[in-house]
Amino acid sequence: MRSNNPVFNRSPEFNGQYTDTQTYAGSGSNYPGYGAPQQNPSDPSTWSVGTPQDQQAGPVERMTVDSVVQKSAITFGLVLVMAALTWAYIGDIATGTALGDQQNLAQLSTALLVGSGGAFVLSMVNSFKRAISPALVLVFAAFEGVALGALSKAFEVQFYDGIVMQAVLGTFAAFAGTLAAYKFFDIQVGNRFRTFTIAAMFGIVGLGLLELVLSLFGISTGLFGFGTLGLLMAVAGLVLGIFMLVLDFDFVEKGVAAGLPERESWRAAFALTVSLVWIYTNLLRILAILNRD
Rank of each mutant, 00 (worst) to 15 (best):
Q56D: 10
A141H: 00
S133Y: 06
T86N: 06
V65H: 10
L113S: 09
L138D: 00
S133E: 00
M63A: 03
V121P: 03
F143P: 01
S27F: 13
P41A: 09
A142T: 03
Q39F: 07
A111R: 06
K129N: 08
S127T: 12
A73H: 08
F128M: 09
I132R: 00
G96E: 01
Q53K: 10
P59Y: 05
S72A: 10
V125I: 15
A106R: 08
A98T: 12
G115F: 00
R62S: 08
Q103M: 13
F128D: 03
R130Q: 13
V121W: 04
S127E: 06
N30W: 14
M63V: 05
F140H: 03
D92S: 14
L122H: 00
D92E: 15
S116K: 04
V121G: 02
L105P: 04
L136Y: 07
F143Y: 06
M82I: 07
A119N: 05
L138T: 02
V137A: 02
Q53D: 06
W47A: 14
L80Q: 01
P52S: 13
A36H: 09
Q103H: 06
A83V: 05
L85C: 12
S48L: 05
P134G: 03
A88S: 10
A142G: 07
N30S: 12
G96V: 07
K71H: 06
R62N: 05
S45T: 12
G77V: 05
P59M: 12
D54R: 15
W47S: 11
Q56C: 04
G28N: 09
S72W: 11
D92C: 11
P32H: 15
Y89C: 04
V68Q: 00
G28F: 07
Q70D: 15
A88E: 05
L108H: 06
S127M: 11
T75C: 05
G58K: 12
A98M: 12
T75S: 04
W47L: 12
V65R: 11
L85V: 08
Q102G: 14
V68S: 01
P134M: 08
M124K: 02
F140C: 01
Q103V: 12
D43Y: 11
T51K: 08
